[in-house]
């Protein structure tokens, strides 16, 4: 077992080294694919943390995408802050906003929570498109990112992707993770045993908001242009849901496999832009009907194989 784990560790290190060295041997197209993969991975891993481990189905993650992106634009363009500081501020703004809405939003459960978060995001979208300071619906250019090289953005995105996986891995092995899994298995029993359900869930909500906001900042380094209708659009969450469902909700590996498939499907279907979302939607429904636990969940169930197990052996 020890041998297997050390082999696994070496495998992870090798893959990481390969990805870090990517800009020195691969074409720009492949670098772009890995960049998109990493960003999707980070975002959907955060949705997975909410939906898969905390039972919070949020349809409003785009609120933090928008806040993170606008924070980057406003702080770096209007105030001339360094880009990296602006991205971190984007994460901070997202956490603060999540804290602000957590009081009303945590009074809602299940479906109410889903629609409540979505409504919050829609409210932000309307506010931003009516707000003169951020240029109404016209949007903002993140001009300072022109100074960054493509490779810098790549390394940042890769870092974000790896960090998100590591964060969820270590989070789930901490006291918080044990509490979360206890809640998932039996909510009432875990509460009587002293798990503070509200605090556990709030913690996850804040962490996922902060990381989503910061990753969104990195993403807008790549997109350069931000506009309220797309930044606060439900499409972001649709993407996270697809990736997590297909890969396997409630598994750490799920979003990795999901993002991999998503990026390739997306590239492959980009020749048929009209039908790409149509096909993705059908695949997602098919996945829920046939393998509700997604690829990784089904593999775990059938073969007992886990690559990154949150359990302590």
């Amino acid at each position: 077992m020890e041998l297997l784990r050390s082999r696994r560790f070496i495998g992870i290190i090798l893959i990481l080294l390969g990805l870090i060295a990517l800009p020195y041997w691969a074409s720009r197209y492949w670098i772009l694919l890995v960049l998109l993969f990493s960003l999707n991975l980070a975002l959907s891993q955060m949705w997975n943390l909410l939906a898969g481990y905390s039972g919070l189905i949020s349809l409003g993650q785009q609120a933090f995408i928008g806040l993170g992106g606008y924070a980057l634009a406003v702080f770096s363009v209007y105030y001339g802050f360094p880009i990296w500081l602006s991205i971190i501020l984007g994460g901070t703004v997202s956490v603060l906003f999540a804290l602000l809405i957590s009081a009303p939003i945590f009074r809602m459960r299940g479906v109410y929570f889903a629609i409540g978060t979505w409504t919050v995001a829609e409210t932000l979208r309307i506010l931003f498109s009516n707000w003169k300071y951020v240029g109404y619906g016209m949007g903002l250019f993140v001009k300072p990112t022109y100074a960054l090289s493509f490779n810098t953005i790549y390394f940042t995105a890769l870092g974000a992707g790896v960090a998100s996986v590591a964060l969820v891995y270590f989070l789930l092995r901490s006291k918080l993770g044990l509490g979360l899994m206890a809640i998932r298995d039996e909510e009432t029993a875990s509460e009587t045993l002293g798990v503070d359900i509200f605090r556990c869930k709030l913690c996850c909500f804040l962490i996922s908001a902060g990381v989503t906001g910061a990753v969104s900042g990195v993403m807008y380094l790549h997109h350069i242009f931000i506009q309220p209708y797309s930044a606060f659009g439900i499409d972001w969450t649709v993407q996270m849901v697809f990736i997590t469902i297909i890969g396997g909700i409630g598994t750490i590996e799920g979003p990795i496999i999901g993002s991999f498939l998503y990026v390739f499907l997306h590239q492959w279907l980009s020749e048929y832009p009209n039908v790409s979302l149509l096909i993705l939607g059908s695949i997602a429904i098919g996945a829920i009907l046939i393998a509700p636990k997604g690829i990784m969940g089904t593999v775990q169930e059938k073969l007992g194989f886990e690559f990154l197990s949150p359990r302590r052996k």
Partner: peptide
């Protein structure tokens, strides 16, 4: 989620 997929379709 099925209804969500249906909405996208």
């Amino acid at each position: 989620l099925v209804a969500f997929g249906l909405s996208i379709i």
